[in-house]
Amino acid sequence: MRVLHRPTASGDLALHVRVAGVDPDRPPVVLVHGMAGDHSTWRTFARALRREGRSVVSVDLRGHGRSGHAATYRLDDFRDDLRFVLDDLDIDVADVVAHSLGAHSALRLAMDVPNRVRRIVLEEIPPMPRDQHDLDENIVVAASLGERVRGLGWAVRNPVPIIRFDRRVATEVSTQFEVADPDWWTRLRAVTAPALVISGGRRSFLPPQHLRSLSEVLPGGRFTVIGAGHSVHRDRTADFGSAAGEFLRSP
């Protein structure tokens, strides 16, 4: 692991990243986990990428894994951390594969600096609520009982992410999804990277139609369903690897 020190108003924030592989001809693939996870959730997919010769950067978000706990957990904080990682590692442009909270953060990055992202895979990304109707559905950042049960086995095998997770992240992030933000949907038009939006289907707490709507707004959006629930890359590893890998191999 490499430790990057990002200056913030409350002091330096340690961001841990794992960098592996060298591919001078293609952009690195940046992997961003979801809430309460860390870089280790991508081990299988990262190995597959390295077998193809790709260089891989796996990030621990603030408040997760070996990265430091922070004073704030605004959605734009996570976006800015990802931009800092690109800057500090001298990465001009990257492919990004991200899950849940990480996918939302990565999409904010692609909205803010579209020239830094070549292709982006958004697995089970929670979109911002558009209006009161979306708010009334109460669908975001609250995993279903089934998802929690499916995640229990993973947590038993690898308890470190849960142990290191700053619980304030969940509270602060959830609060930000309780306010409608139609402008977020408008700003999606700024994304220039082709995007693959992966839904976990009806087993997920995120209704597939919301993710399909997101893919339709993105200028280069594509949509697919892999019926695994919220953690597709974990519970349908081969299917996720096939879909995401094929997408990343496109020119």
Rank of each mutant, 00 (worst) to 15 (best):
D112Q: 07
R83V: 14
L86H: 06
S100M: 08
R108L: 15
D88M: 01
E124G: 15
D134A: 09
A94W: 06
D80E: 15
V96P: 06
R119W: 10
S105E: 01
D87Q: 12
N138T: 00
D81M: 08
S100Y: 07
P126K: 05
S105P: 01
D81V: 10
D112S: 15
I125D: 00
A106I: 08
D136R: 06
I125V: 15
D136L: 13
G102L: 11
M111H: 03
L89N: 02
D95E: 15
P129N: 12
P129C: 11
N115S: 15
R130E: 14
D80S: 14
R118F: 10
M111R: 14
T72R: 06
L75C: 01
V141Q: 03
D77L: 02
D81G: 02
L135D: 11
V93R: 15
S105F: 00
T72C: 01
D95T: 05
L101M: 15
V140G: 03
E124R: 03
D88T: 12
L122R: 13
L101R: 09
D90Q: 09
R79D: 01
P114L: 13
L135H: 09
P114V: 07
D136G: 06
A94K: 07
V97M: 13
V85S: 09
D77G: 05
R74M: 00
R108Q: 15
T72W: 00
L109R: 05
V113N: 05
V85C: 09
A106D: 03
V140Y: 11
R83G: 13
D136E: 15
L109Y: 08
V85T: 03
D80H: 07
E124A: 15
D92F: 00
L122T: 01
I120G: 10
H99P: 00
D87K: 04
L82Y: 02
A142P: 00
A98L: 08
E123F: 11
V93S: 06
R130V: 06
L135I: 10
R130L: 11
H133K: 10
D81E: 08
M111D: 04
V96T: 09
R79K: 14
D88C: 02
S100K: 08
P127V: 08
V97Y: 08
L82T: 04
V140L: 11
A142S: 14
T72P: 00
A94R: 04
G102W: 11
V121C: 08
D80M: 04
F84L: 10
V96C: 11
P126M: 04
L109M: 06
V96Y: 12
E123W: 08
V96A: 09
I91R: 02
